[in-house]
Design a protein around this nucleic acid. Structure first.
Length: 421
RNA sequence: GGAGGGAUACCAAAGUGGCCAACUGGGGCGGACUGUAAAUCCGCUGGCAUCGCCUUCGUAGGUUCGAAUCCUACUCCCUCCA
């Protein structure tokens, strides 16, 4: 399989070093490649999936993938794409995040396969023991300040200011590439479009360290944008995380299910392993029967399964069905706790309390006034029954399984109240 | 250093003694329509409550029966001249 053609068909190639040379090299046999992930948060988000899955595409095509977590670079801070200096994170925090990222990456990249297992590395391992003198003599000598200043990540910060720490970032990342070439014969680095400067700095370093006799390659992937020009991956409530505790599988599934018709095909190409042919069929489906949203459903299922597993996917579908197409009343108490574990909930002790107070307590309304407004607007449904009387008491609402009140506000916001004696 | 202009609710922007909880636009939220869409239309958008009450218009005081509106001081921002 021609991996480069597949990536091109999917719109996944943005910038590259000599593409013909890379194609030639790939034709000669499996290549070792790497992509780095810096621990800047306790979880990856949906944007990281683009590069992580591309790494997997290479692995599936028989190439040797290395996933690097930036235990060292995460302590320094990449200036790329940032308009201001980062605040340094605590060492312990970064260590913790490294572990979390490692765990997440193993969901998409196969480190245990018997034929072609991928490798996980942490650049802290070879950076921690680097002493200043050898770093400056052996590595630093290969970097020209003039060149470094010209890089977008640095030049864009010269007016606003940049610390020496962040300025040096690209040297560390370049050293990673060099180190991986030495250790594992790694010849290709993948990254997001903002990584171009760091990647070329790396290919340059490897070449210089070998007296211009070695060529390694770099590839960047495009930033995924929506048809309205904005960045993909942000919901009203913030980033879409891969950590189930930060973005529930249900919310994750819903996010993808709700993508615009104009974006869904592009996203299928980027985020799924469906063949281009299969995706083109779905494109037809969008054109002829958009209301069925087959493409969106496919996208949501494929990616949720990939990130959270089959079981979580089924749960997300089940919740979706009962919330949007089924009857909540049909659910058992156990199913309710399961279905609404991702939804804001609260426990009410006063069965004689008013619905208005309950709405405020569960967070469905910011104030009693707003709660009353929602009720009189017909925005509030409790256990499938629309409530329109402001003075409604909890006791009148017939809890499911004797204790659950499933409150819906508007069309798709849910809250769960458990009433205890 | 000198001269002038401004600070209003999430943002923008009216209001210049009582009719102001404060025009209007955007955003947000809710409703109708729909495909859990887009577009469109309608409503709400300080808090508590049974008429009504309480807290808000940069900060702190003052004048007045009554102030976002007038006066004083302070803080911050902008423009122009040096």
């Amino acid at each position: 399989m021609d991996i480069l053609k597949d990536l091109q068909d999917r719109g996944l190639i943005y910038q590259s070093t000599d593409l013909d040379l890379l194609r030639k090299r790939l034709g000669e046999g499996p290549i070792t490649l790497y992509c780095g992930f810096d621990p800047t948060a306790d979880s990856l988000h949906i944007g990281h999936l683009v590069t992580a899955l591309t790494l997997r595409r290479f692995q599936l095509a028989g190439h040797h993938a290395i996933a690097l977590v930036g235990g060292a670079t995460g302590l320094i801070g990449d200036p790329s794409g940032r308009t201001s200096e980062r605040t340094l994170n605590q060492k312990e925090t970064v260590e913790e995040w490294v572990e979390k990222l490692k765990k997440q990456l193993s969901r998409f990249i196969d480190f245990d396969s018997s034929q072609n297992p991928a490798r996980m590395v942490n650049n802290y391992d070879w950076t921690k023991s680097l002493d200043v003198i050898s770093f400056l003599r052996d590595v630093g000598k290969n970097f020209s300040i003039n060149n470094m200043l010209a890089k977008e990540s640095v030049s864009s910060r010269l007016d606003k200011g940049i610390s020496f720490t962040e300025f040096s970032y690209m040297i560390l990342q370049s050293y990673d590439f060099f180190k991986l070439y030495e250790l594992y014969g790694c010849e290709l680095q993948l990254g997001g479009s903002d990584q171009w400067g760091n990647i070329t700095a790396g290919t340059d370093l490897v070449r210089k360290m070998h007296n211009e006799k070695v060529t390694v390659h770099g590839l960047t992937l495009p930033l995924i944008t929506k048809s309205d020009g904005t960045k993909f991956g942000k919901s009203a409530s913030g980033a879409i995380w891969l950590d189930a505790d930060k973005t529930s599988p249900y919310a994750f599934y819903q996010f993808l299910l709700n993508v615009d018709d104009n974006d869904v095909i592009k996203l299928l190409k980027v985020f799924t392993f469906l063949t281009i042919e299969e995706i083109l069929e779905l494109e037809q489906e969008v054109a002829t029967a958009p209301e069925k949203r087959v493409a969106q459903r496919t996208l949501a299922e494929e990616v949720t399964r990939l990130v959270h597993g089959e079981e979580a996917l089924q749960r997300a579908i089940h919740i979706t069905n009962s919330l949007f197409h089924g009857e909540i009343r049909n659910l058992t108490g156990q199913e309710i706790t399961e279905a609404f574990q991702d939804v804001p909930s609260t426990t009410l002790s006063d069965q004689q309390g008013s619905l208005v107070d309950a709405l405020v307590q569960v967070g469905a309304a910011k104030s009693k006034r707003e709660a009353r407004e929602f009720i009189s607007n017909g925005a509030i449904t409790v256990n499938d029954v629309k409530v329109t009387h402001i003075a409604t008491k909890l006791a009148e609402l017939a809890p499911l399984d004797g204790k659950y009140l499933v409150i819906r506000r508007g069309k798709k916001k849910y809250y769960l109240c458990e009433v205890v004696a």
